[in-house]
Amino acid sequence: MTETAFQRQKDLPKSHLLSAGTPMCAGCGGLEAIHIAYDVLGENTIFVNAAGCMTLLSVYPFTPFRGSWLYTAMGAAPAGAQGVRDALDILMDKGRIEVADDLDVVVLTGDGSGYGMGISATSGTIDRCLDYLYIVYDNEGYGNTGQQYSAATPHAARTATSRCAYGHKGFKKDLFSILAANGAAYVATAIGSEPLDLAQKIEKAKSISGPRFIITLAPCPTGWDFDPKETMTIGKLAVRTGVWPLKEFTDGKVSHNKTFSKLLPVETYLEQQGRFRHLFEPQKKEAVLRDIQNSINRYWHEVATI
């Protein structure tokens, strides 16, 4: 990333396009990522949204968007983007609108739709080489319904549907690799607590055509059970512990944007969140913690080997 307008964090836009007054929770990590993304995308953007927390961004007659927005349904947002993109192309081809009237089509969904219900529609857009950007805000559970586990919930996390002593028995789906294997033009992970990286990735995605994806981990005070003021702290720890690798897939290659000679132990990330408290209280579950740490180590070992 050499030709970026964002060399340092102070290059980020000074004014914000997304209006305040939305019903997202105080300290919402997803909302923070979206306001950064929107500032880079600009107002000539249409967000096509699926059911999730962010559906409530626009509740009649209130909208935070200066551009456009279309709510569809939980499994349908990428297909909604297909109709809008195709229609805009047709209108320009037939001279019914000016090229200057064109919009960037951006799908916005949570992990429930992105990792689950909408994945068939998502895959379809890659098959058809649809020119759009898809932003997933991944808060690792069905947050808007009270944080039940989803395909994005990490191993051992307590959710409303995994309240047992162990927590969630499943493992987080590797959506990044699925999208890359499907042939996406661009796939990246990002997080709002690393705004410069996020802005650079939005900027890069905007410059590429074809199906593009940015999966942003969205620390969620409500669903992960931590004080809202800790949202960015926890986000930074997700990166520093190696839980959330910041990476990109372009031209058939995966590259990591942030690597560390030494990762912080994963416990520093886990112990700050109520959803993992059962791994520390009443007594420490050493074996589970070791498994989690090992899986992170294994991932980064493979990265280093490649």
Binding site: S19, A20, G21, P23, P61, T63, P64, R66, G67
Partner: peptide, 9 residues
């Protein structure tokens, strides 16, 4: 655009 600013969160 931006009508959510009328909501006093």
């Amino acid at each position: 655009g931006g009508t959510s600013s009328k909501v006093q969160t």
